[in-house]
Design a protein around this nucleic acid. Structure first.
Lengths: 147, 147
DNA sequence: TCCCTTAGTTATCATTTGATAACTAAATAG
DNA sequence: CTATTTAGTTATCAAATGATAACTAAGGGA
């Protein structure tokens, strides 16, 4: 197996993934929030509860900017900040009911598009896809967090 | 195969892909260009020669904004515009030598990181990965361009 | 207690990006 | 030949984002 050929396939693949996710997530963002705000909410949705520092780190945003965006999101009643009882400097952030509803709506639309994409796949193909997802996630797109 | 479970795996997967590509492409962008300019150059690199309209369409940017960014990229001598001899309204855009050099450098760094990621994979695992890339690209992340 | 670190905030400014209107020039259809 | 469409440009404005400094408040170690 030539690793250089593999790299080209890899580049083509991630290009395709980005392209398709762009298409699939197109129009799911309500006009009331900005792109980064949507991204933050998406992150909170799959990682909650999460601290501000963690969001800052994972979204590659500075603390001040993260704090600002989170304030705006809070003002729109889409998330809640709960001060940690152990360490009162920390704030655990989670979606509010309204935020959950918004993100559920968004994910539902993405799900529909996903289902449409795999509508013609046979049972064997679905198994194949499932296996492929696992292979790539464990062998290529694994995260090597030190902690 | 439960399609709902599959959707969750799909979401986890694209999250991982975005996360890892973010990490891998971190710091490869020279400070002399902005993020969108880099993205445009990346697109030109894999699609050249390409027209302005095509870039505009694929990057989901308006023509005026695409034109502006492309002008800036040209001014930095990173790409060249060649007027089509058939249809003199059209311009074919390709990387300049300097642009090629910059993008080669960027891709080389990404390649190194990719190689590092798969350094422990056995020959069989590489075959597996290769197969998985193909399965997903053809069965999930295919593009359904009408033309 | 005093000092240092961590978590987060507020304010401010520059830059980037997005959106729109009004334009030129070339191609093409009638 | 005129009208319309296509490809791209220029100018301008508003909004979003990034970067930085100066801050508060809590926790932890000596």
């Amino acid at each position: 197996m030539d690793k250089n050929t593999m790299f080209h396939k890899f580049v083509d693949f991630i290009t395709a993934v980005h392209q398709i996710t762009n298409e699939m997530t197109k129009d799911v963002r309500p006009e009331t929030i900005t792109h980064v705000q949507y991204k933050i909410l998406e992150y909170i949705a799959v990682s909650q509860p999460v601290t501000l520092s963690k969001i800052s780190e994972c979204m590659h945003m500075s603390m001040p900017n993260t704090s600002r965006e989170l304030r705006k999101i809070s003002e729109k009643q889409l998330c809640e900040k709960i001060t940690d009882t152990e360490d009162r400097r920390k704030q655990f952030i989670r979606l509010s009911e309204k935020g959950e509803a918004m993100m559920n709506e968004a994910f539902k639309r993405i799900e529909t598009r996903f289902m449409h994409r795999i509508r013609n796949a046979s049972e064997e193909e679905l198994e194949e896809i499932d296996r492929a997802l696992e292979v790539l996630q464990t062998k290529v797109f694994y995260s090597n967090k030190l902690l």
